[in-house]
């Protein structure tokens, strides 16, 4: 058995994998093994059922809705993918624009909140100062509120930043100026733009990033910093030359975990944005189901679902070890 686990053949290794270091296979009676295999296979089928269903749909060329159950692809057609990439919605917006909007929001929000949060996290983790406790609670309070809880005031406040053409050659910048009569022709509304959505998303992401990074910085041993201090380095040098390089792996993981969340962000964009050119992939996916779906063929919906899922799945699988390590106390071996 032990020789098998070291076999180069991946299938042999997979079959005889020892995940908890025990000597496998021998101490389980065959009838028990078969019974447990049936059980584990059933669970695997439960997991695979919706996945196979959506994969099968996405590779189908049928534009009619499915009339009978199919969970194994009968054909391998990329028509649905092609159509989604060519013309994802009924609106004149290209797939690339949707993709770009999604990426801009998730990367922008992730980077800005991380950059702003890291210095605050450092201060909370390493310095003792007056009001430390109070300021930490201040950062913690917004975390209690679900993100939707801030939607109303952010909508209203961002909506008051507008640029309008009043018609008589006067451009009004609200909230500082307003047209004499009416709204004028609104040229730009911060609320109805990716910038505004980004601001609203950062409001939700920033306290979390501060808290999360502080927790990580607390685990970095202070000896290195103390040694540098004895060598005459000041706090700024220690921060930039010791703490930041040490924290980079965790900064990256925090960024990617944030990315996964922001990629799926739906509430704020769906509330704020009205122009199809600003839509994100998550919003497009939402539009392809339920009452809004109209006559969108299900194979196209399925292709879109897989496209939206792809980046998140790739990141998860690539960072599985770090993510699992962060989420579980004991850590999963094998």
């Amino acid at each position: 058995m032990t020789t098998n686990t070291k076999s180069k053949n991946p299938i042999v290794r997979l079959l005889t994998m020892n995940t908890s270091g025990e000597v496998g296979g021998r101490d389980l009676p065959l009838w028990k093994q078969i019974l447990l295999q049936l059980l584990t296979l059933f669970i695997a089928a439960e997991v695979m059922f919706p996945l196979m269903y959506v994969i099968t749909l996405s590779f189908s060329s049928k534009t009619t809705r499915p009339s009978s159950l199919e969970i194994f692809p009968k054909e391998l057609s990329f028509v649905a993918y092609q159509q989604v990439l060519d013309r994802p919605t009924a609106n004149p917006v290209t797939f690339l624009e949707l993709l770009q909007n999604s990426f801009t929001l998730s990367i922008g929000v992730g980077l800005i909140s991380l950059l702003v949060a890291v210095t605050a996290a450092y201060a909370f983790s390493r310095f003792k100062f007056k009001m430390r406790q109070v300021l930490m609670i201040l950062v913690f309070v917004p975390l209690l509120m679900p993100a939707i809880g801030l939607a109303t005031p952010l909508y209203l406040l961002l909506n008051s930043f507008r640029v309008a053409d009043c018609g008589n050659g006067v451009i009004a910048l609200s909230p500082f100026m307003a047209c004499d009569v009416g709204l004028g022709k609104v040229l730009f509304n911060l609320r109805d733009s990716l910038w505004g959505v980004g601001v609203a998303m950062i409001a939700g992401a920033l306290p979390f990033a501060v808290w999360n990074l502080k927790g990580y910085l607390d685990t970095i041993p202070k000896e290195l910093e103390e040694a540098a201090m004895i060598d005459g380095a000041d706090a700024n040098q220690i921060f930039w030359q010791i703490v930041i390089p040490l924290a980079i792996p965790q900064l990256a993981v925090t960024f990617f975990l944030g990315f996964i969340g922001h990629w799926q962000e739906f509430a704020m964009p769906w509330l704020f944005l009205s122009q199809p050119g600003d839509y994100t992939l998550a919003m497009t996916l939402y539009n392809m189901t339920g009452q809004y779906a109209g006559s969108i063929p299900w194979n196209r919906f399925a292709a879109m679902a897989i496209i939206v899922a792809a980046p998140v799945a790739v990141i998860y699988i690539a960072l599985q070890k770090q993510i699992v390590g962060g989420l579980t106390a004991g850590g999963v071996k094998g």
């Binding site: 997979l14 005889t16 389980l28 093994q33």
Partner: peptide
């Protein structure tokens, strides 16, 4: 169930 000693195909 997954932790049962000697269960085949655990990793899969």
């Amino acid at each position: 169930l997954l932790n049962t000693q000697g269960l085949w195909m655990k990793r899969l």
